[in-house]
Nucleic acid binder design. Structure first.
Lengths: 193, 193
DNA sequence: AAAAATACGGAACAATCGTTCCTGAATTAG
DNA sequence: CTAATTCAGGAACGATTGTTCCGTATTTTT
C-alpha cells in the first residue's frame, strides 16, 4: 500500500562516502549531505537516522567494498609479490591522478574519530585486523610458492605492509604529487621481499 | 605606559597544541580553548587573532619543537642506525603509554586540513621536506660510517623512514596498544638497514 | 596622583550546527 | 476511489559555533 522508494539507498550511501571521505565527519554539514545526496532533509533523516549513523553506515560500506576487491585481487593472483606491487602502484596512481586527493577514507576516519567515537574505533580496529590477516595469508602463500623471501615472518611482513600503506595514504591526503617520492618508498619496501 | 602581559604566550601556545592535537581543529571549539588555555575570550582573540591563526601558530611551534629535538638527536648520535631505532622506539613508547593517544599533531593536521587550508598544506609540505632532508643527511652519514647498508639510496631510505613514521603515528592515533604490532613493523623496517 | 594601556570576565552577536516537524504532492496496493 | 506510505520542501527548533564588544579592574609610565 506504500509508495516505493524513489532513490537507491546504496547509491545514496556511495554519495555519502564521497563527501565524508572528502570533507571528513566534522567538516561535513547536514546541508552538505542534502546537497550532495540529492535527498531532502526529511528523507535523509527518515532513512538513515542521524549524521553519525549515516557516517558509520558509509564507512562500513567503504570497508566492505575495499575488502572485497582486496580478496578478489589475491584470489586471482598468480604471483603474490606482483599482486602486492599492484596494490601499491594502484594507490600511487590514485594519489597522483585525483585532482582532489582524498587519501583513504578509513585512515582519515581513524585519525579524525577513532579517539572520540568508540563505534568508529571498533570499525577501524576490525578493519586493521582483517586486512592484516589478508596480507598475512597472502604473504604465507607467496613464501610457500617461493615468490617472497621468508627471511621475515609473514605476520611481521603483513603488519609492515599495512603500515606503509597507511603512510602512503597519508602522503596522498597531504597532497604529495611527486611520483618520485612514492616510487622511492616502494623501492625500499619491495627490497625487503 | 602599558600594563604587561600576565600570561606567557608560549605557555598558552603549548596548551593550544595540547588541545588541538587531542581534538583536532574542527573538534576544538572556542570554549574548549578558553577553558584549556586559561585565558579569557577577549585576551585569546586579542592575542592570537582568531581560531585559524592560533592553530597555525600552534602547529608551527609544534613543528619547531620536533625539528629541534630531531636535529639534536642526530648531532649527538655516535651511531646513526641506533639513533634511528631510538626515534621509532620512542614513538612506540609514546603510543603505548599515552592513556589517550594523540598520534602526531602534524600527521593529524595533514589528514584533517591539508586539503582544505592552503596555509596548513604549506606547513605540512615544508615539514615533510625538512624532515626528509634531515633523515637523508643522517642516512648518508650512516652509510659513510658503514653503520647503514648502502644497498639503498639515502634519499629513498629517508622517504621510506618518513613513510613508516607516519604509518606508526596513524596506528597510535587509531588506538593500537599491542606492542607486538609495533615491534613487528620495526623489525621489518630495520631489516633493510 | 594622573593618564595611558592592557587584561579580564561576561554579555551578546549573527551564523551555522544537527535535528524535528509540518504540509502537500506523488505513488502504490487493495 | 480510498487508504497507506513516502516523497520533497521548507519552516522552525534549541544549541553551539566563532567572534565582537563593553565595562571594570589592574598595572605601568609620566
Amino acid at each position: 500500500m506504500a509508495r516505493t522508494k524513489e532513490f537507491n539507498e546504496d547509491q545514496a550511501l556511495d554519495k555519502a562516502i564521497e563527501i565524508f571521505w572528502h570533507k571528513g565527519y566534522n567538516g561535513t554539514s547536514a546541508q552538505d549531505l542534502v546537497n550532495h545526496l540529492g535527498l531532502s532533509r526529511s528523507s535523509l533523516y527518515d532513512t538513515f537516522g542521524d549524521k553519525q549513523k549515516l557516517f558509520v553506515k558509509s564507512l562500513k560500506r567503504y570497508q566492505k567494498q575495499n575488502l572485497d576487491s582486496l580478496n578478489e585481487l589475491f584470489e586471482n593472483a598468480e604471483n603474490i609479490k606482483t599482486a602486492l606491487t599492484e596494490i601499491f602502484k594502484q594507490a600511487v596512481i590514485e594519489s597522483l591522478q585525483d585532482r582532489i586527493t582524498k587519501g583513504c577514507f578509513m585512515v582519515n576516519s581513524a585519525v579524525e574519530l577513532a579517539m572520540h567515537d568508540p563505534e568508529i574505533a571498533k570499525i577501524v580496529h576490525d578493519n586493521q585486523k582483517v586486512v592484516e590477516d589478508i596480507f598475512c595469508a597472502a604473504v604465507k602463500k607467496g613464501q610457500d610458492l617461493g615468490q617472497i623471501s621468508d627471511r621475515q615472518e609473514a605476520r611481521s611482513l603483513a603488519r609492515f605492509i599495512f603500515n606503509n600503506y597507511s603512510g602512503i595514504r597519508v602522503l596522498a591526503r597531504a597532497g604529495e604529487k611527486d611520483k618520485q617520492v612514492y616510487d622511492d618508498i616502494l623501492k625500499s619496501i619491495f627490497a625487503l621481499f
